[in-house]
């Protein structure tokens, strides 16, 4: 976990927009952010666009980072970006439908689909069975790796509520995945 923490020096380089600082940022966070977006929308291209938009936002807003957990700050921006996008487009359901359709088409087109992709599709399917808020919360926790306390703060809700939602969500995921093998 210590590896994930950004050093003060690195943050300083980031704020000064020094050469190589952005590469480091991408190396550390792009994968996790992509995973977060991909799990929520199920669309690789859309997720890449989200990641790109997020990192541009991060570069623009880096001056507003006031210390504390950088992961918490970054994933708050990511979460807001995704929510804003859904609100703006009014297309969460359509997005999921499109993603499912995209996945189905991909399955049809590619005979060489790997077992890993099939497994991912099952998780995607299970996440789609959850309500949007719970799915977002589970993925936010999983990919941001922030504490429950920070998670509750990011969502402006009591920590007990966050714990309860995570518990219910994971239980349902388990039920869906284990009982539908």
């Amino acid at each position: 976990m210590a590896e994930q923490q950004l050093s003060a020096t690195f943050l300083e380089r980031l704020i000064k927009r020094e050469n190589g600082a952005f590469d480091e940022l991408v190396r550390r966070y792009a994968g996790r952010c992509y995973g977060y977006f991909y799990r929520l929308c199920g669309n690789a291209e859309q997720s890449e666009e989200f990641v790109s938009e997020l990192f541009v936002k991060l570069v623009e807003k880096i001056d507003t980072f006031e210390g504390g957990s950088f992961d918490k700050w970054l994933f708050t921006v990511a979460s807001n970006l995704f929510r804003d996008h859904l609100r703006r487009q009014y297309r969460y359901k359509r997005l999921l439908d499109e993603a499912a359709e995209h996945q189905r088409r991909r399955q049809d087109d590619s005979a060489e689909q790997s077992r890993q992709e099939a497994a991912n599709d099952r998780l995607q399917w299970a996440l789609e069975k959850l309500d949007k808020e719970t799915a977002e919360l589970l993925m936010l926790r999983y990919y941001s790796q922030v504490s429950f306390k920070d998670l509750a703060e990011m969502r402006n809700e009591p920590i007990g509520t966050t714990l309860s939602k995570v518990h219910r969500g994971l239980k349902k995921i388990r039920f869906l995945l284990e009982d539908n093998r």
Binding site: V26, A30, Y34, G35, Y38, V56, A119, L123, L138, I173
Partner: peptide, 23 residues
């Protein structure tokens, strides 16, 4: 259970494009 589903990877091409854009 979630750990059993490896995270989708950002393609090397997309990561390179992102680096270029930020650069």
């Amino acid at each position: 259970l979630l750990d059993g589903f490896p995270s989708p990877e950002l393609s090397a091409q997309a990561a390179a494009e992102l680096r270029r854009r930020l650069d």
